[in-house]
Amino acid sequence: MIRKTILACVALGIFATSCSNDDDNNKVTTADLTVDLTGLEALGSGFVYEGWIIVDGSPVSTGTFSSVTFPQSFTVDADQLEAATTFVLSIEPAVDSDPAPAATKILAGDFSGNSASVNSNNIVGDLSTATGKYILATPTDDDETNEASGVWFLDNSTETTIAGLDLPVLSDGWKYEGWVVFDGTPISTGTFTDPAAADDNAATTLFKGDAGNGPGYPGEDFLQNAPTGLTFPTDLKGKTIVISVEPSPDNSAAPFTLKPLAHGVPTDAVNHTVINMEAGPLVTLSGTATR
Rank of each mutant, 00 (worst) to 15 (best):
P247Y: 06
F192P: 07
I106W: 01
F47Y: 15
G212M: 13
L170Q: 03
D126P: 11
E278K: 03
T5I: 15
S117P: 01
D210L: 12
I123Q: 10
T85S: 15
L33H: 06
P247Q: 10
D166N: 15
N225E: 08
P71C: 11
I91K: 11
D110L: 05
E246A: 04
L33G: 04
F232T: 05
D98G: 07
D194L: 07
G238V: 09
W152F: 11
W152T: 02
E246T: 00
F232S: 10
I53Y: 07
G44N: 08
T240G: 10
E220S: 08
S117D: 13
F47M: 04
S244T: 11
I135C: 03
A84K: 06
I135T: 11
T131K: 09
T191G: 14
I123C: 05
D77F: 02
F256C: 04
A31D: 09
S112M: 09
N122H: 05
I106M: 13
D22Y: 11
I187R: 09
D141W: 12
A83K: 15
I162E: 15
K208N: 11
S90R: 02
D36M: 05
T231W: 10
F70K: 05
N201P: 01
T204D: 10
P101I: 01
V169Q: 12
S188H: 12
T231K: 07
A262L: 04
P227W: 11
L285C: 03
W152V: 00
T240H: 02
V265H: 04
V55S: 07
L261N: 06
P195F: 07
F15G: 01
L261Q: 10
N25I: 11
D32I: 00
F111E: 14
T161Q: 06
E50D: 13
K237C: 08
G216N: 15
A42V: 14
V88G: 03
S58D: 06
A94I: 03
I2T: 15
F111M: 14
A202P: 04
A103I: 00
P227I: 02
M1L: 04
K27Y: 11
V270R: 03
T288L: 05
V270W: 01
S67N: 11
T17C: 11
D250T: 13
T228P: 01
S120H: 09
G132E: 08
N156P: 06
M277Q: 12
P266Y: 07
L167Y: 06
F74R: 09
P99N: 06
C9S: 07
V242D: 10
A202F: 15
Y134P: 02
E92A: 07
K133N: 10
L258E: 04
P71Q: 09
D22W: 11
G212L: 12
A279Y: 04
Q72C: 04
L285D: 03
G212H: 08
I2L: 15
D141T: 03
P99H: 09
D79A: 14
T75G: 05
I6C: 13
C19R: 13
K239I: 00
A203T: 09
N21W: 03
G109L: 07
T189M: 14
P215C: 06
E50F: 10
D166T: 09
A102V: 03
T228F: 09
I2F: 15
P59V: 01
A202V: 12
T38V: 07
E82T: 15
G209T: 05
L7M: 12
A137R: 14
K27P: 00
